[in-house]
């Protein structure tokens, strides 16, 4: 039996992943962000958020040593884990699509609100792509600048569209992810990165607690008690 080759170290891993630098990384972040904001299904939103953090790690690896880039994935992973456990605790886990119940009948999986959210997400995405050459803050490198504005804009859209704790939490984490990128480019100080990462985790904990306090999404609707 052939011995297993040694697992590549972090530097090698990120060096290999640099093949995805540029457009593929931006696409990963872009699609992940758009889905995380548009999706009403919590599992889809969490999966998309993880995708965003993987993309952020790839982008950060260009700006900081790989250990710091890995911190992005760890923070995002912990946040997603906290929210997954909170959703289970809150009783969302029984169904794949915890959409609204009305008079005992489950609404269509593709509810009108999903269409509206998708439309808003697409409009914002198009607007940002068109504006890309004219984005302010010229001191930031091109790809990082576009990712920062993308994450920030979708964070704001998420706040505007989201009424539930999970949606607000995701939106705030997107905004803080943009902040982390700004810090990585302008003031890469380890203490500041740690402080912001701790804040991200605290925010995930607090919103996780609020998810549990809110209970099942359909519990407060007429005829929707499980």
């Amino acid at each position: 039996m052939q011995p297993l080759p040694p697992f590549p170290d972090l530097e090698t891993l990120f060096a290999q992943a640099q093949q995805l630098a540029g457009l593929p990384t931006l696409l990963i972040i872009g699609v992940g962000t758009a889905v995380a904001v548009a999706a009403l299904d919590w599992r889809l939103a969490l999966a998309a958020l993880m995708l965003v953090y993987v993309g952020l790690a790839l982008l950060t690896a260009n700006l900081l040593p790989p250990q710091w880039a890995l911190l992005r994935v760890i923070t995002g992973g912990f946040a997603a884990l906290i929210w997954y456990l909170s959703a289970q605790q809150a009783g969302w886990g029984g169904r794949f699509l915890p959409f609204r119940h009305s008079q005992g009948v489950q609404a269509r999986p593709l509810a009108s609100t999903t269409l509206f959210r998708s439309l808003m997400v697409l409009t914002l995405a198009l607007w940002l792509v068109v504006l890309r050459p004219r984005l302010p803050l010229p001191m930031l490198p091109g790809d990082a600048r576009f990712a920062i504005f993308w994450l920030g804009a979708f964070g704001l859209l998420g706040l505007a569209l989201g009424a539930e704790a999970l949606q607000t939490g995701i939106a705030l984490l997107l905004w803080l992810a943009a902040t982390q990128l700004v810090v990585a480019v302008l003031q890469p100080a380890p203490d500041l990165i740690w402080l912001l990462s701790s804040l991200e985790l605290l925010l995930a904990l607090a919103t996780g607690y609020l998810m549990i306090a809110r209970g099942p999404l359909w519990a407060d609707e007429p005829g929707g008690q499980e």
């Binding site: 919103t207 609020l210 306090a213 809110r214 407060d220």
Partner: peptide
């Protein structure tokens, strides 16, 4: 239990 708007 219920609305979380005030905390969020």
């Amino acid at each position: 239990q219920g609305s979380t708007r005030g905390a969020l």
